[in-house]
C-alpha cells in the first residue's frame, strides 16, 4: 500500500469513527501498523546460498531496529536453514524450490521458509541434541550444527510439517534498537 493510500485510509477511519459517534479519546487509541511482506522463490541449489544470505541481510537492513550484527546473524540463520533444506530435505535434488517469506515490522521480522522436500517430512529439529564438543570427536558428526545456530540466533523457531504437502520453518527475530512508533 502506498503512503497516499494509507493516509486516505486513516482519514476514512477518522471520519467514519466520528460519524459513528465514537469519542475522540477512543479514536486516538486506534493504532495502525503497516506490515510489509516480501516473498522470494529460490531454486534449491547450494550456489544460491550466498545470494540468499546477502538478500536476507539487505531486506532486514530496511528495518530500523536491527543493527549490523543482527543483519549478519539473520543472514547466517538463513544460510543454515536453506542449507538444511537443499542438502537434507531435497537431498540435493536441484529441481526443488525454496519459498522465503519476510513479514516486516519496524522492530520484528518473521521469516517463513517453505520447501517440498521429501526428507523434510520426517525431520524433527527437537530430536537433534545440543552441540557437544566431545560428541563431535567421538562421532565426527557434522549434522545438527545449523539447527543449533538458528536456535541461538533467532528468538522464536518453529518447524511444522504438512504431510504430503510441504515443510515450513518459521523464525522470528526482534530488533534490539528501540523504535519510536
Amino acid at each position: 500500500m502506498l503512503k497516499k493510500e494509507l493516509e486516505e485510509l486513516m482519514t476514512f477511519m477518522k471520519d467514519e469513527g466520528e460519524q459513528l459517534g465514537l469519542s475522540q479519546v477512543n479514536l486516538d487509541k486506534i493504532k495502525v501498523d503497516k506490515i510489509e511482506t516480501l516473498k522470494f522463490t529460490f531454486p534449491s541449489h547450494t550456489s544460491q546460498l550466498e545470494l540468499i544470505r546477502l538478500v536476507s541481510s539487505r531486506v532486514i537492513s530496511t528495518l530500523p531496529a536491527f543493527d549490523e550484527d543482527d543483519l549478519d546473524d539473520i543472514g547466517l540463520a538463513m544460510d543454515e536453514a536453506c542449507t538444511n533444506i537443499i542438502v537434507h530435505s531435497y537431498h540435493e535434488n536441484i529441481s526443488g524450490v525454496i519459498i522465503v517469506k519476510f513479514t516486516l515490522e519496524p522492530d520484528k521480522v518473521t521469516i517463513t521458509i517453505i520447501d517440498k522436500g521429501e526428507k523434510g517430512q520426517t525431520f524433527n529439529p527437537d530430536e537433534l541434541s545440543i552441540v557437544d564438543k566431545e560428541a563431535y570427536l567421538s562421532t565426527l558428526s557434522r549434522g545438527g550444527l545449523g539447527v543449533h545456530i538458528i536456535k541461538k540466533i533467532m528468538d522464536e523457531v518453529e518447524y511444522t510439517v504438512v504431510p504430503g504437502l510441504h515443510n515450513c520453518l518459521t523464525m522470528v527475530k526482534y530488533g534490539k534498537i528501540s523504535v519510536k512508533k
Binding site: L49, L76, D79, E80, T83, Y136, L137, L140, R142, L145, G146, H148, I149
Partner: peptide
C-alpha cells in the same frame, strides 16, 4: 557457515 566449520570438525579427530 556451520558447513564451513564442519570441514575442520570432520578431520580434527
Amino acid at each position: 557457515s556451520s558447513a564451513g566449520i564442519g570441514c575442520f570438525i570432520g578431520v580434527i579427530k
